[in-house]
Amino acid sequence: MEGTDYEQWLARAQSLAENIQMGNDDAVNRIIDEISRARESMLFQELGKLTREFHEALNGFRLDARITHLAQENIPDAKQRLNYVIVMTEQAANRTLTAVEEVMPVCEKLGAQSKDLHERWEKFTHRHMTAAAFRDLSKDVGSFLESAPTDAEKIRTNLSDVLMAQDYQDITGQILQRVIRLVNEMEEHLVRLVTGSGLRTREVAPPATPQAAVATAAASDTVAVHGPHIPGSAPEEEVVHSQDDVDALLSSLGF
């Protein structure tokens, strides 16, 4: 409370006390009215200040074109990118699971067959086997040896598929790096906006250094050119869709 305000309040309070003691009802009511009016006008002043700050902040928001661009273009784009990450990781997970599920029984079969043949082979080497049982053993060894290479090849193929399925990490990693850069940029712009609009800034993190801002700008420039293609994110004619397209383009260039 300012000095003059304080004196006014004190004068009012003293006059109120005197009038109450004298039993001057009209004067008491008048002074109470004055006090509440003064209180209201203070509230209105505060409210007016807040409204002006809010209005300026909104104007600043409209003036910062980059923020508008971030909100209208980059955020939906980032959402699309993150959805693509979900799709890719899901595909990779399913591909890996399928490959593993397919060869699990093959491994179990190979193990069980080897164990069975080994037990019978032991009987044979200890001469605990009839001629008829040996003929069966010999037949089973033959068919086991026949199918083992096919089973091994199946296992190798699926393991190789599991290996290839891990390529999602590279592509999704690149996409996530770009989204992180976007979030950082968004944060910097919001901090700058809050700092510049006269709102309370003490609780807000200090604005990023100019160097960091330059680095972000440079990074977002490269972002525009590089990185994995997200379906629907760029004009389709600018982008190749398969290795065949790449090969066709290169061969048109004399490759």
Partner: peptide, 19 residues
């Protein structure tokens, strides 16, 4: 993962052997 036509052309011009 770069699949823009201009990038493939740029790589070809820079002397890439395969893409």
């Amino acid at each position: 993962a770069e699949s823009k036509r201009e990038q493939i052309v740029a790589a070809a011009q820079a002397g890439v052997n395969g893409y």
